[in-house]
């Protein structure tokens, strides 16, 4: 029997993603890719895969998986989700060997909106335009261009070694700060008055429940562009903060359309996009302007993190209950130290 990961159940919005479908923006094709690039890269690195290798992006809807045909090395990294195998709790950032018959269950936990299941090996589904990234709006990538569903079988090939039992992953960079999300003004900040830009940065915004992989809508005051509601459509990047005709801002995320005709007041810097993505609907968020130099420095720090090995600490079964524990783990996952995003 060939090896596979099988979906026992999947909530809405769980998709296969990789580094994205690049090179086709000029034909209207959205790159898609992970909502939290750093978390997916960390998961992949923990099982020896390339940072942009195909992985499962788990939404707040959660997922249950079983291995078929072989024991599969997996890493789970992202928000603080509730992770368990056959009812035994695991830490939210973990590397494990999933044996056939064991049931891995991932559910929304204390914090965070997305987590990633990376495989030591390769999820072998047919790429579309060179990528497995799922973009459901155009039905491209993943499994038939759709979210994962109960009964989906993901063939896994080139399976890597399973390194012992479960191990907690030390990834302090994924303990995201509550600092304002940093953004670079433009490309249409001149459509807004200085007072409007100041107000945008002063306000505490709430992430709307309408938010999804395409956009995070911001609830708060109206920031109607002073110089007209429409522009001639131009390109849109992930992180673009577009203000609609009614003055409501939205941050365009991984599944955004490639062009748009509303003015964009600013762009969330790359290294803060994952931090924003992990905020759940109902969370409050603030924004602050930064300079390109700061954004590039944060990118450089992120690159250094991914170039280094990821520390894995073996877990031990706590004698009194079913929780697998490891002494450094809690501080490693939840402490606010070592935040690479700090200015």
């Amino acid at each position: 029997m060939s090896a596979a990961l099988k979906t026992v159940s999947a909530g809405p919005g769980v998709t296969l993603q990789d580094a994205g479908r690049h090179g086709y923006l000029r034909y209207g094709v959205t790159a898609a890719g992970p909502m939290d690039r750093l978390a997916m890269a960390t998961a992949n690195r923990a099982v020896g895969a390339a940072p942009g290798a195909t992985a499962i992006e788990v939404s707040l809807g959660g997922i249950e998986l079983v291995a078929e045909g072989a024991t599969l090395p997996l890493a789970i990294v992202g928000g603080a989700f509730d992770v368990s195998i056959d009812g035994h709790k695991l830490p939210p950032a973990v590397r494990l060997a999933l044996t056939p018959g064991a049931r891995l269950r991932i559910r929304a936990g204390a914090d965070g909106a997305w987590c990633y299941v990376a495989v030591g090996g390769r999820i072998d589904v047919p790429p579309v335009l060179g990528s497995n990234a799922t973009h459901t709006r155009s039905s491209l990538g993943g499994i038939d261009g759709r979210a994962l569903a109960t009964g989906d079988v993901l063939p896994v090939v080139d399976i890597g070694p399973c390194e012992g039992g479960a191990a907690g992953l030390t990834a302090p960079w994924l303990a995201r700060s509550d600092d304002p999300i940093r953004m670079i003004l433009g490309p249409q900040d001149d459509y807004f008055s200085r007072e409007q830009i100041e107000r945008f940065c002063r306000e505490r915004w709430t992430i709307s429940h309408r938010s999804d992989r395409m956009a995070y809508f911001l609830e708060g005051p109206q920031i109607a562009p002073a110089n007209g509601l429409n522009i001639v459509s131009d390109g849109i990047v992930m992180g673009a903060i577009q203000v609609l005709g009614d003055g409501r801002p939205m941050v365009l995320m991984a599944d955004r359309q490639v062009t748009g005709g509303y003015p964009k007041i600013a762009t969330v810097i790359g290294p803060d996009q994952g931090r924003l993505a992990q905020m759940r609907p109902g969370s409050s968020v603030r924004f602050a302007t930064t300079a390109i130099e700061q954004a590039v420095a944060a990118r450089r720090a992120e690159r250094a993190i991914l170039d280094a090995a990821i520390e894995a600490v073996p877990l031990v079964r706590h004698p009194s209950d079913d929780v697998l524990l490891e002494s450094n783990l809690i501080s490693g996952v939840t402490a606010g130290s070592g935040n690479v995003d700090a200015d």
Partner: peptide, 9 residues
């Protein structure tokens, strides 16, 4: 114009 630190318009 800048669309963030990785795209120039």
């Amino acid at each position: 114009l800048d669309a963030g630190e990785a795209a120039l318009v």
